[in-house]
Nucleic acid binder design. Sequence first.
DNA 1: TCTAGGTACTTGGCAAGTCTATGTATGACC
DNA 2: GGTCATACATAGACTTGCCAAGTACCTAGA
Lengths: 113, 113
Amino acid sequence: MSASTRSGPQLSRGEFGLLVLGLLHRRDMYGYEIVAELRRSTEGAIDLPEGTVYPALRRLEREGLASGYWVEAPGAAPRRRYYKLTQAGEHALATGMDDWHRFKVAADAVLGQ
Amino acid sequence: MSASTRSGPQLSRGEFGLLVLGLLHRRDMYGYEIVAELRRSTEGAIDLPEGTVYPALRRLEREGLASGYWVEAPGAAPRRRYYKLTQAGEHALATGMDDWHRFKVAADAVLGQ
DNA sequence: TCTAGGTACTTGGCAAGTCTATGTATGACC
DNA sequence: GGTCATACATAGACTTGCCAAGTACCTAGA
């Protein structure tokens, strides 16, 4: 045997899920919009493909952190699946931001700022 | 098709590899020492099990970012496999820290600091 | 002497997340 | 009619992270 007892989650897995939670905290959004908004607001620094975002949204929904609903788009564009943070999602966001902050500080310490 | 051309790596992939590179930049280290040092210097915020660190070291070596060498331990303790950053490793560290910094800023912007 | 615990590395295998690529469908524009 | 943008979906590959277990040796203590 080896390795002591481990504690909380190690981040870096589901980090993108946290970002999505952060966006949904502002307002309800749909997948395609999230991709665009992420790219826009980070000036391309974070550029997640649809193949990452859609599964992430389904994950969040499956885990009860967000709930989705269909909205017919104006005109006759493709309908959109909007997602809304649940209360559990708000809580997970708070916890996740805490973890993120601790991780950031720790990583910076290791990397020499 | 969709989603424009993607650019560099998205970080959060190989983030732990970056931390290891950061440690090796200070001085040559061996696996068990890295586990302990990471835990110590981050006050437990980053606590990687051996099952994560040893494979990571092998990965770095396979990719030419670090080179390993055996050292007989003083006394008659188990021998240690030390790792040293290669030039490519130093370069990858610099690039990785750049990416990390950009990611951090972008993520904080999304999360509202 | 027997046991426990620390050091140190290794490996198998699963679970999960990410990304590429591709597909569907629609409407707008030229 | 062809192209582009919107919008969602998913299969499959790849990578990572981690648990769990094992090997081997040494020291300390009962």
